[in-house]
């Protein structure tokens, strides 16, 4: 554990908490993509199957449980409790166009061809692109509430901080994982446009509105 890794995990945790707070306080999931949240739930479940096979640390186990539980809690709030506020018409991204290619890629490029390893790899590829329905929704509506922007910033920062963690680990421990690094770089790049808008608009107190 190094400072970048810890900061990344905390940023990830903060993102999830911000999202739950937004939905709970406003009693609404307007502006949030249920498609992205479904993809994140698939990511956590397929990645954390090793919860039942391997014990790494209490921290590791607890964080995995928090990520899985909170992602299902988010889905419950969106699709059951506050279903009426869900932005169904704008959330029209076809997730099979992400799920299928990621699965095929995981079958082709993985560390070893075993069920757990392929599912882990699938989750890494899928996580890289899971935010696309959310970014698509923001681009369709042309704006995002400030708390939604904070959520996206924290969620994007998490993988960017992991990139620093991987650079650090490469030099400090000789540890590297090309699959995670490659996917993490793609994931971070997808947020760049949003990061720019966040820094130039939201941090200056303006609403995140896309140029017409």
């Amino acid at each position: 554990m190094n400072i970048f890794r810890l900061a990344g995990d905390l940023s990830h945790l903060l993102a999830i908490i911000l999202l739950l707070i937004k939905i709970w306080k406003t009693r609404s999931c307007a502006g949030i993509s249920g498609k992205s949240q479904i993809l994140f739930a698939v990511v956590y479940v397929s990645r954390y199957l090793d919860l039942v096979t391997t014990f790494i640390s209490l921290y590791n186990t607890l964080m995995k449980l928090v990520f899985i539980t909170s992602s299902f809690a988010t889905l419950y709030l969106m699709y059951v409790k506050f279903k009426a506020t869900y932005d169904h018409n704008h959330d029209s991204f076809r997730i099979e166009f992400l799920l299928l290619p990621c699965f095929v890629l995981a079958l082709l490029i993985n560390a070893s061809f075993t069920p757990l390893e392929v599912l882990w790899t699938f989750s890494i590829y899928l996580e890289a692109v899971a935010i696309l329905p959310q970014l698509f929704l923001v681009s369709k509506t042309g704006e995002a509430e400030s708390i939604t922007s904070h959520y996206l910033f924290a969620l994007g920062s998490y993988r960017a901080l992991y990139l620093l963690n991987w650079i650090y680990r490469y030099y400090a421990e000789g540890h590297y994982d090309l699959i995670a690094i490659f996917a993490g770089a793609i994931q971070t790049i997808l947020y760049c446009d949003f990061f720019y808008l966040y820094i130039t608009k939201v941090l200056k107190g303006k609403k995140l509105q896309l140029p017409a």
């Binding site: 995990d9 640390s57 590791n60 964080m63 560390a111 390893e117 882990w120 699959i179």
Partner: peptide, 10 residues
């Protein structure tokens, strides 16, 4: 391409 499971990262 990678070191394989188990992974210590999240």
């Amino acid at each position: 391409y990678g070191s394989g499971l188990p992974k210590d990262e999240l």
